[in-house]
Each structure stands twice: as C-alpha cells, then as structure tokens.
C-alpha cells in the first residue's frame, strides 16, 4: 500500500491553498479584485505601484498551480476504488482536473505579462488584466465537470462499505452548481455578477477553497482506513 505517497498527494492540496494565498492574496494583493469598471490608467497604476510584489507573488501562485496535479491524482485514486476496471468517471475527473491546472496557471501568467512591462500602454495592461480575470473567474466548466463526476461516482457506490460518505456526493454537486455563476461575468462590469461581485466571485472562491478542506479531511480518513485494512 502506497500510504505515504497518497498522504503526500493529499497534503499537496493544502500546500496549494497556502502557497496560492501567500502569493496571490498577500503579495500580489489581488484580493479583493480590482473592479472591472476601472479605467485603463487606474488598472495600469496597480501594476506600476506594486510591481515587485506582484511579480514575486504570481510566481508563487504559478508554482502552487502545479501542486493541484497530485491532489487531483489522489482523488482519482480513491474514485477508482469505487469504479474498478471501467473507471470512466475517474478518467473524466483526471482530464477535467488537468485542465483545471491551466485555469489556475494561465491567468497568473497573463497578470505576470502585465507586470513584466508596467510602463507600456495602459490599454494593453488593461487587456492583459481583463484576460487574466475573465479566464480566472469565468472558466467554471472543468471544475464543474470535476465536482459533478466526483458526486456521481459517490452515488454510484453501492457497496456495503462505501469509499466516500454519501453526503460528500451531495456536497460535490452543490459545489459544482455554485461555480456556475462565474459564467455570467462576461455581461457585467459592476454588481454581484461582475468579476469582483459577491455571487460570481466571492461565493465560488470561498466554496472552491472550502472544497479543498472538506475533501482533504475525507481523503485523510480514507487513506488511513485503507492502510489499516491492508
């Protein structure tokens, strides 16, 4: 039994949270997000005033993104215990999770490009800033699929000793649905559905981070049980 590797992978999820928070929240100070209603000059000023911290913070956030790969893998590994030889939902989760890494890394790179030459034309900085934020907040589809198939796999578990508790299935589907309002940011520059709005941004963000913590608890329990059973 590869208990140690599994534990390492699970802890990578927590490491992602910590590193991303340090880089993206505390150094780059991207929380709260800049309003989509800001003018080009106001956006450029953000990158001009805080250039060094943004560059370094985003570098940490980029590193954090990669840590979700082992995290996704350990979830897949547990899901495969449910599905056995024909693990289609597990594969779906892996593919969606892999795409999810890009959703975390690409916006970070767009913001990095903006911070690379902060004195270029403010319009161009705004373009990169828009690209980063829209990519980051709007791209719910891989995460939606990821959470949905985790939920479906849990519901499909008919064994007497299910791998995951059933409430976790409902939880994952609930999370999946709550990530959807991010898709609305394309229509709005202010209000709750804008990329800094309570429903399109804050709610999915809190829930996405909370999802890591909930999954982490259950994964640890599962891995320990597996180790005992072996």
């Amino acid at each position: 039994m590869n208990t140690k590797s599994q534990l390492l992978c699970a802890w990578c999820g927590i490491a992602f949270l910590v590193l991303f928070t340090i880089g993206w929240v505390f150094l780059a100070r991207f929380l709260p997000p800049p309003s989509p209603a800001l003018s080009a000059n106001e956006v450029a000023a953000i990158y001009q005033q805080n250039t060094g911290a943004i560059r370094f913070g985003l570098m940490l956030a980029m590193i954090a993104g990669g840590l979700t790969a082992p995290w996704v893998a350990v979830i897949a590994n547990q899901m495969k215990r449910i599905e056995g030889d024909s693990p289609v939902l597990t594969y779906t989760m892996l593919v969606a999770g892999a795409a999810g890494i890009l959703v975390l890394v690409l916006p970070v790179m767009a913001w990095t490009v903006a911070a690379f030459r902060p004195d270029r034309d403010p319009e161009l900085i705004m373009l990169l800033n828009d690209f980063g934020w829209i990519f980051f907040v709007m791209t719910f589809s891989p995460f939606f699929v990821q959470n949905m198939v985790i939920g479906l796999a849990i519901f499909a578990d008919k064994s007497d000793a299910p791998v995951f508790p059933r409430w976790l299935g409902y939880f994952n589907i609930w999370v999946a649905i709550l990530l959807v309002p991010g898709g609305l940011i394309t229509f709005f520059k202010t209000g709750p559905f804008a990329w800094d709005g309570i429903i399109a941004f804050w709610l999915p963000l809190v829930i996405f981070f909370g999802w890591f913590l909930v999954m982490f608890q259950v994964l640890l329990k599962n891995i320990k049980q597996q180790a005992l059973a072996a």
């Binding site: 059933r166 409430w167 299935g169 409902y170 939880f171």
Partner: peptide, 11 residues
C-alpha cells in the same frame, strides 16, 4: 438520507 440535507441547506 442525511446527505440530501447537505444539499438542501446549502441551497
């Protein structure tokens, strides 16, 4: 089942 209440209360 208890799980459905996670969803209902969440909603």
């Amino acid at each position: 089942e208890v799980g459905i209440w996670v969803f209902i209360l969440g909603d």
